[in-house]
Design a protein around this nucleic acid. Structure first.
Lengths: 198, 198
DNA sequence: GCGCTAAAAGCAAATAATTTGCGTTAATGG
DNA sequence: CCATTAACGCAAATTATTTGCTTTTAGCGC
């Protein structure tokens, strides 16, 4: 159970959490993640190791906790004037960020933790960004696919490739965007009239 | 650096590796993975802990090593007589296996390791299975999409959802298969849409 | 504000995991 | 069969983790 923003968000507790997070970020900048230990973080943060052990349990949870904060989008998707442009630009940026060494590491930290709440959060962040683009498209009167379609057609392939070895090229990313925009123009979810049994 | 099948695959070394792997599998059956430690595995396997430390470095690598073996497909994709049937049945089975508690854990172990060679292996396993289905389709004279298209359109969405919180429903899995078969009938890579009757 | 309660932090001792140096075993190659 | 050396076992040294207890302080009713 990562403490995070539950239980007693007041003064000292919050200060300790901030200090620990900051220590982790700082250490990860200068050393290999394999060499980062809880006692080291504690020293850097100016707290005792047992505080970290009691709050986060193990290094993995703490790293996931820090990573998810860094994966939180810090800006609105760029408005290019068109849905296609918005999605293309956002996707390329997202892909670049995630396939960078830091992005990969953060994603791994989030997925490696026992608690998958952080992974869900990352998914939610991404959906929110896409929802913003979709909303803008709607306001403009443009067609835009379902969020799930974008997740399946664009986000999932990018993440899969990053996690399982490949680095998606920019051309492939553009293809993914093209395909998802071509496939489901505006309808919520209606795959086809198929002979559904059961 | 997981030792695995490099360097001196002979008698004793191989025996130790097998014993350690078996010990890990055995322990994971009866206890929570959070409680599995290297000294415990060593005791179960009848080796000294330092042997494990020297060969695998850390628990995470050993777990990844064991997990990738369990993720290796142990049978050919079922031949249903048609490409669609083959892909549907294989996909459903794959999805079920991966979204089970054990499948999830194994995938997490593979992704959590520093060394991403194991993750690449998993990807390769999946591609091989799909290649077999594709080949059968080819022999039958049926259209079949590019392997990459299947990875992007079917495998990636399933894995993404499993990793990031959702469990894909069987209906969605069927939709994914339907869409990928409809989209790119036989050509390597052509995002165009043509009403083709197979 | 003031004190009460308990959550969270600190400290230090106890326990457990990891690393390391060195001697031994046994796979590999000639 | 012998030489070479990777891999193992053992045990001591180091480092990380857990835990019992004390102290600090946030949250809350008055």
């Amino acid at each position: 159970m990562p403490a995070k923003e539950n239980l007693r968000p007041g003064g000292r507790s919050a200060r300790v959490q901030a200090s620990v997070h900051s220590a982790v970020r700082s250490l990860l900048k200068t050393m290999d993640r394999a060499d980062v230990t809880i006692p080291l973080i504690a020293a850097e943060a100016g707290v005792t190791p047992s505080t970290i052990y009691r709050r986060w349990g193990e290094l993995q949870e703490l790293l996931a906790d820090v990573a998810v904060e860094r994966l939180r989008p810090d800006m609105l998707p760029i408005d290019t004037g068109s849905a296609r442009g918005d999605l293309e630009v956002w996707t390329e940026q997202y892909c670049e960020e995630m396939s960078s060494g830091i992005g990969r590491d953060m994603m791994r930290d989030v997925l490696a933790a026992q608690d998958n709440a952080n992974a869900c959060k990352c998914d939610a962040f991404t959906r929110e960004q896409i929802a913003l683009i979709a909303e803008r498209a709607h306001v403009r009167g443009e067609a835009f696919p379902d969020i799930d379609a974008v997740m399946d057609g664009v986000v999932a392939p990018i993440i899969y490739r990053i996690l399982f070895g490949d680095q998606p090229s920019i051309e492939r990313v553009r293809d993914l965007v093209t395909n998802v925009l071509a496939a489901s123009p505006t309808r919520p979810r209606q795959p086809a009239s198929a002979p559904i049994s059961g």
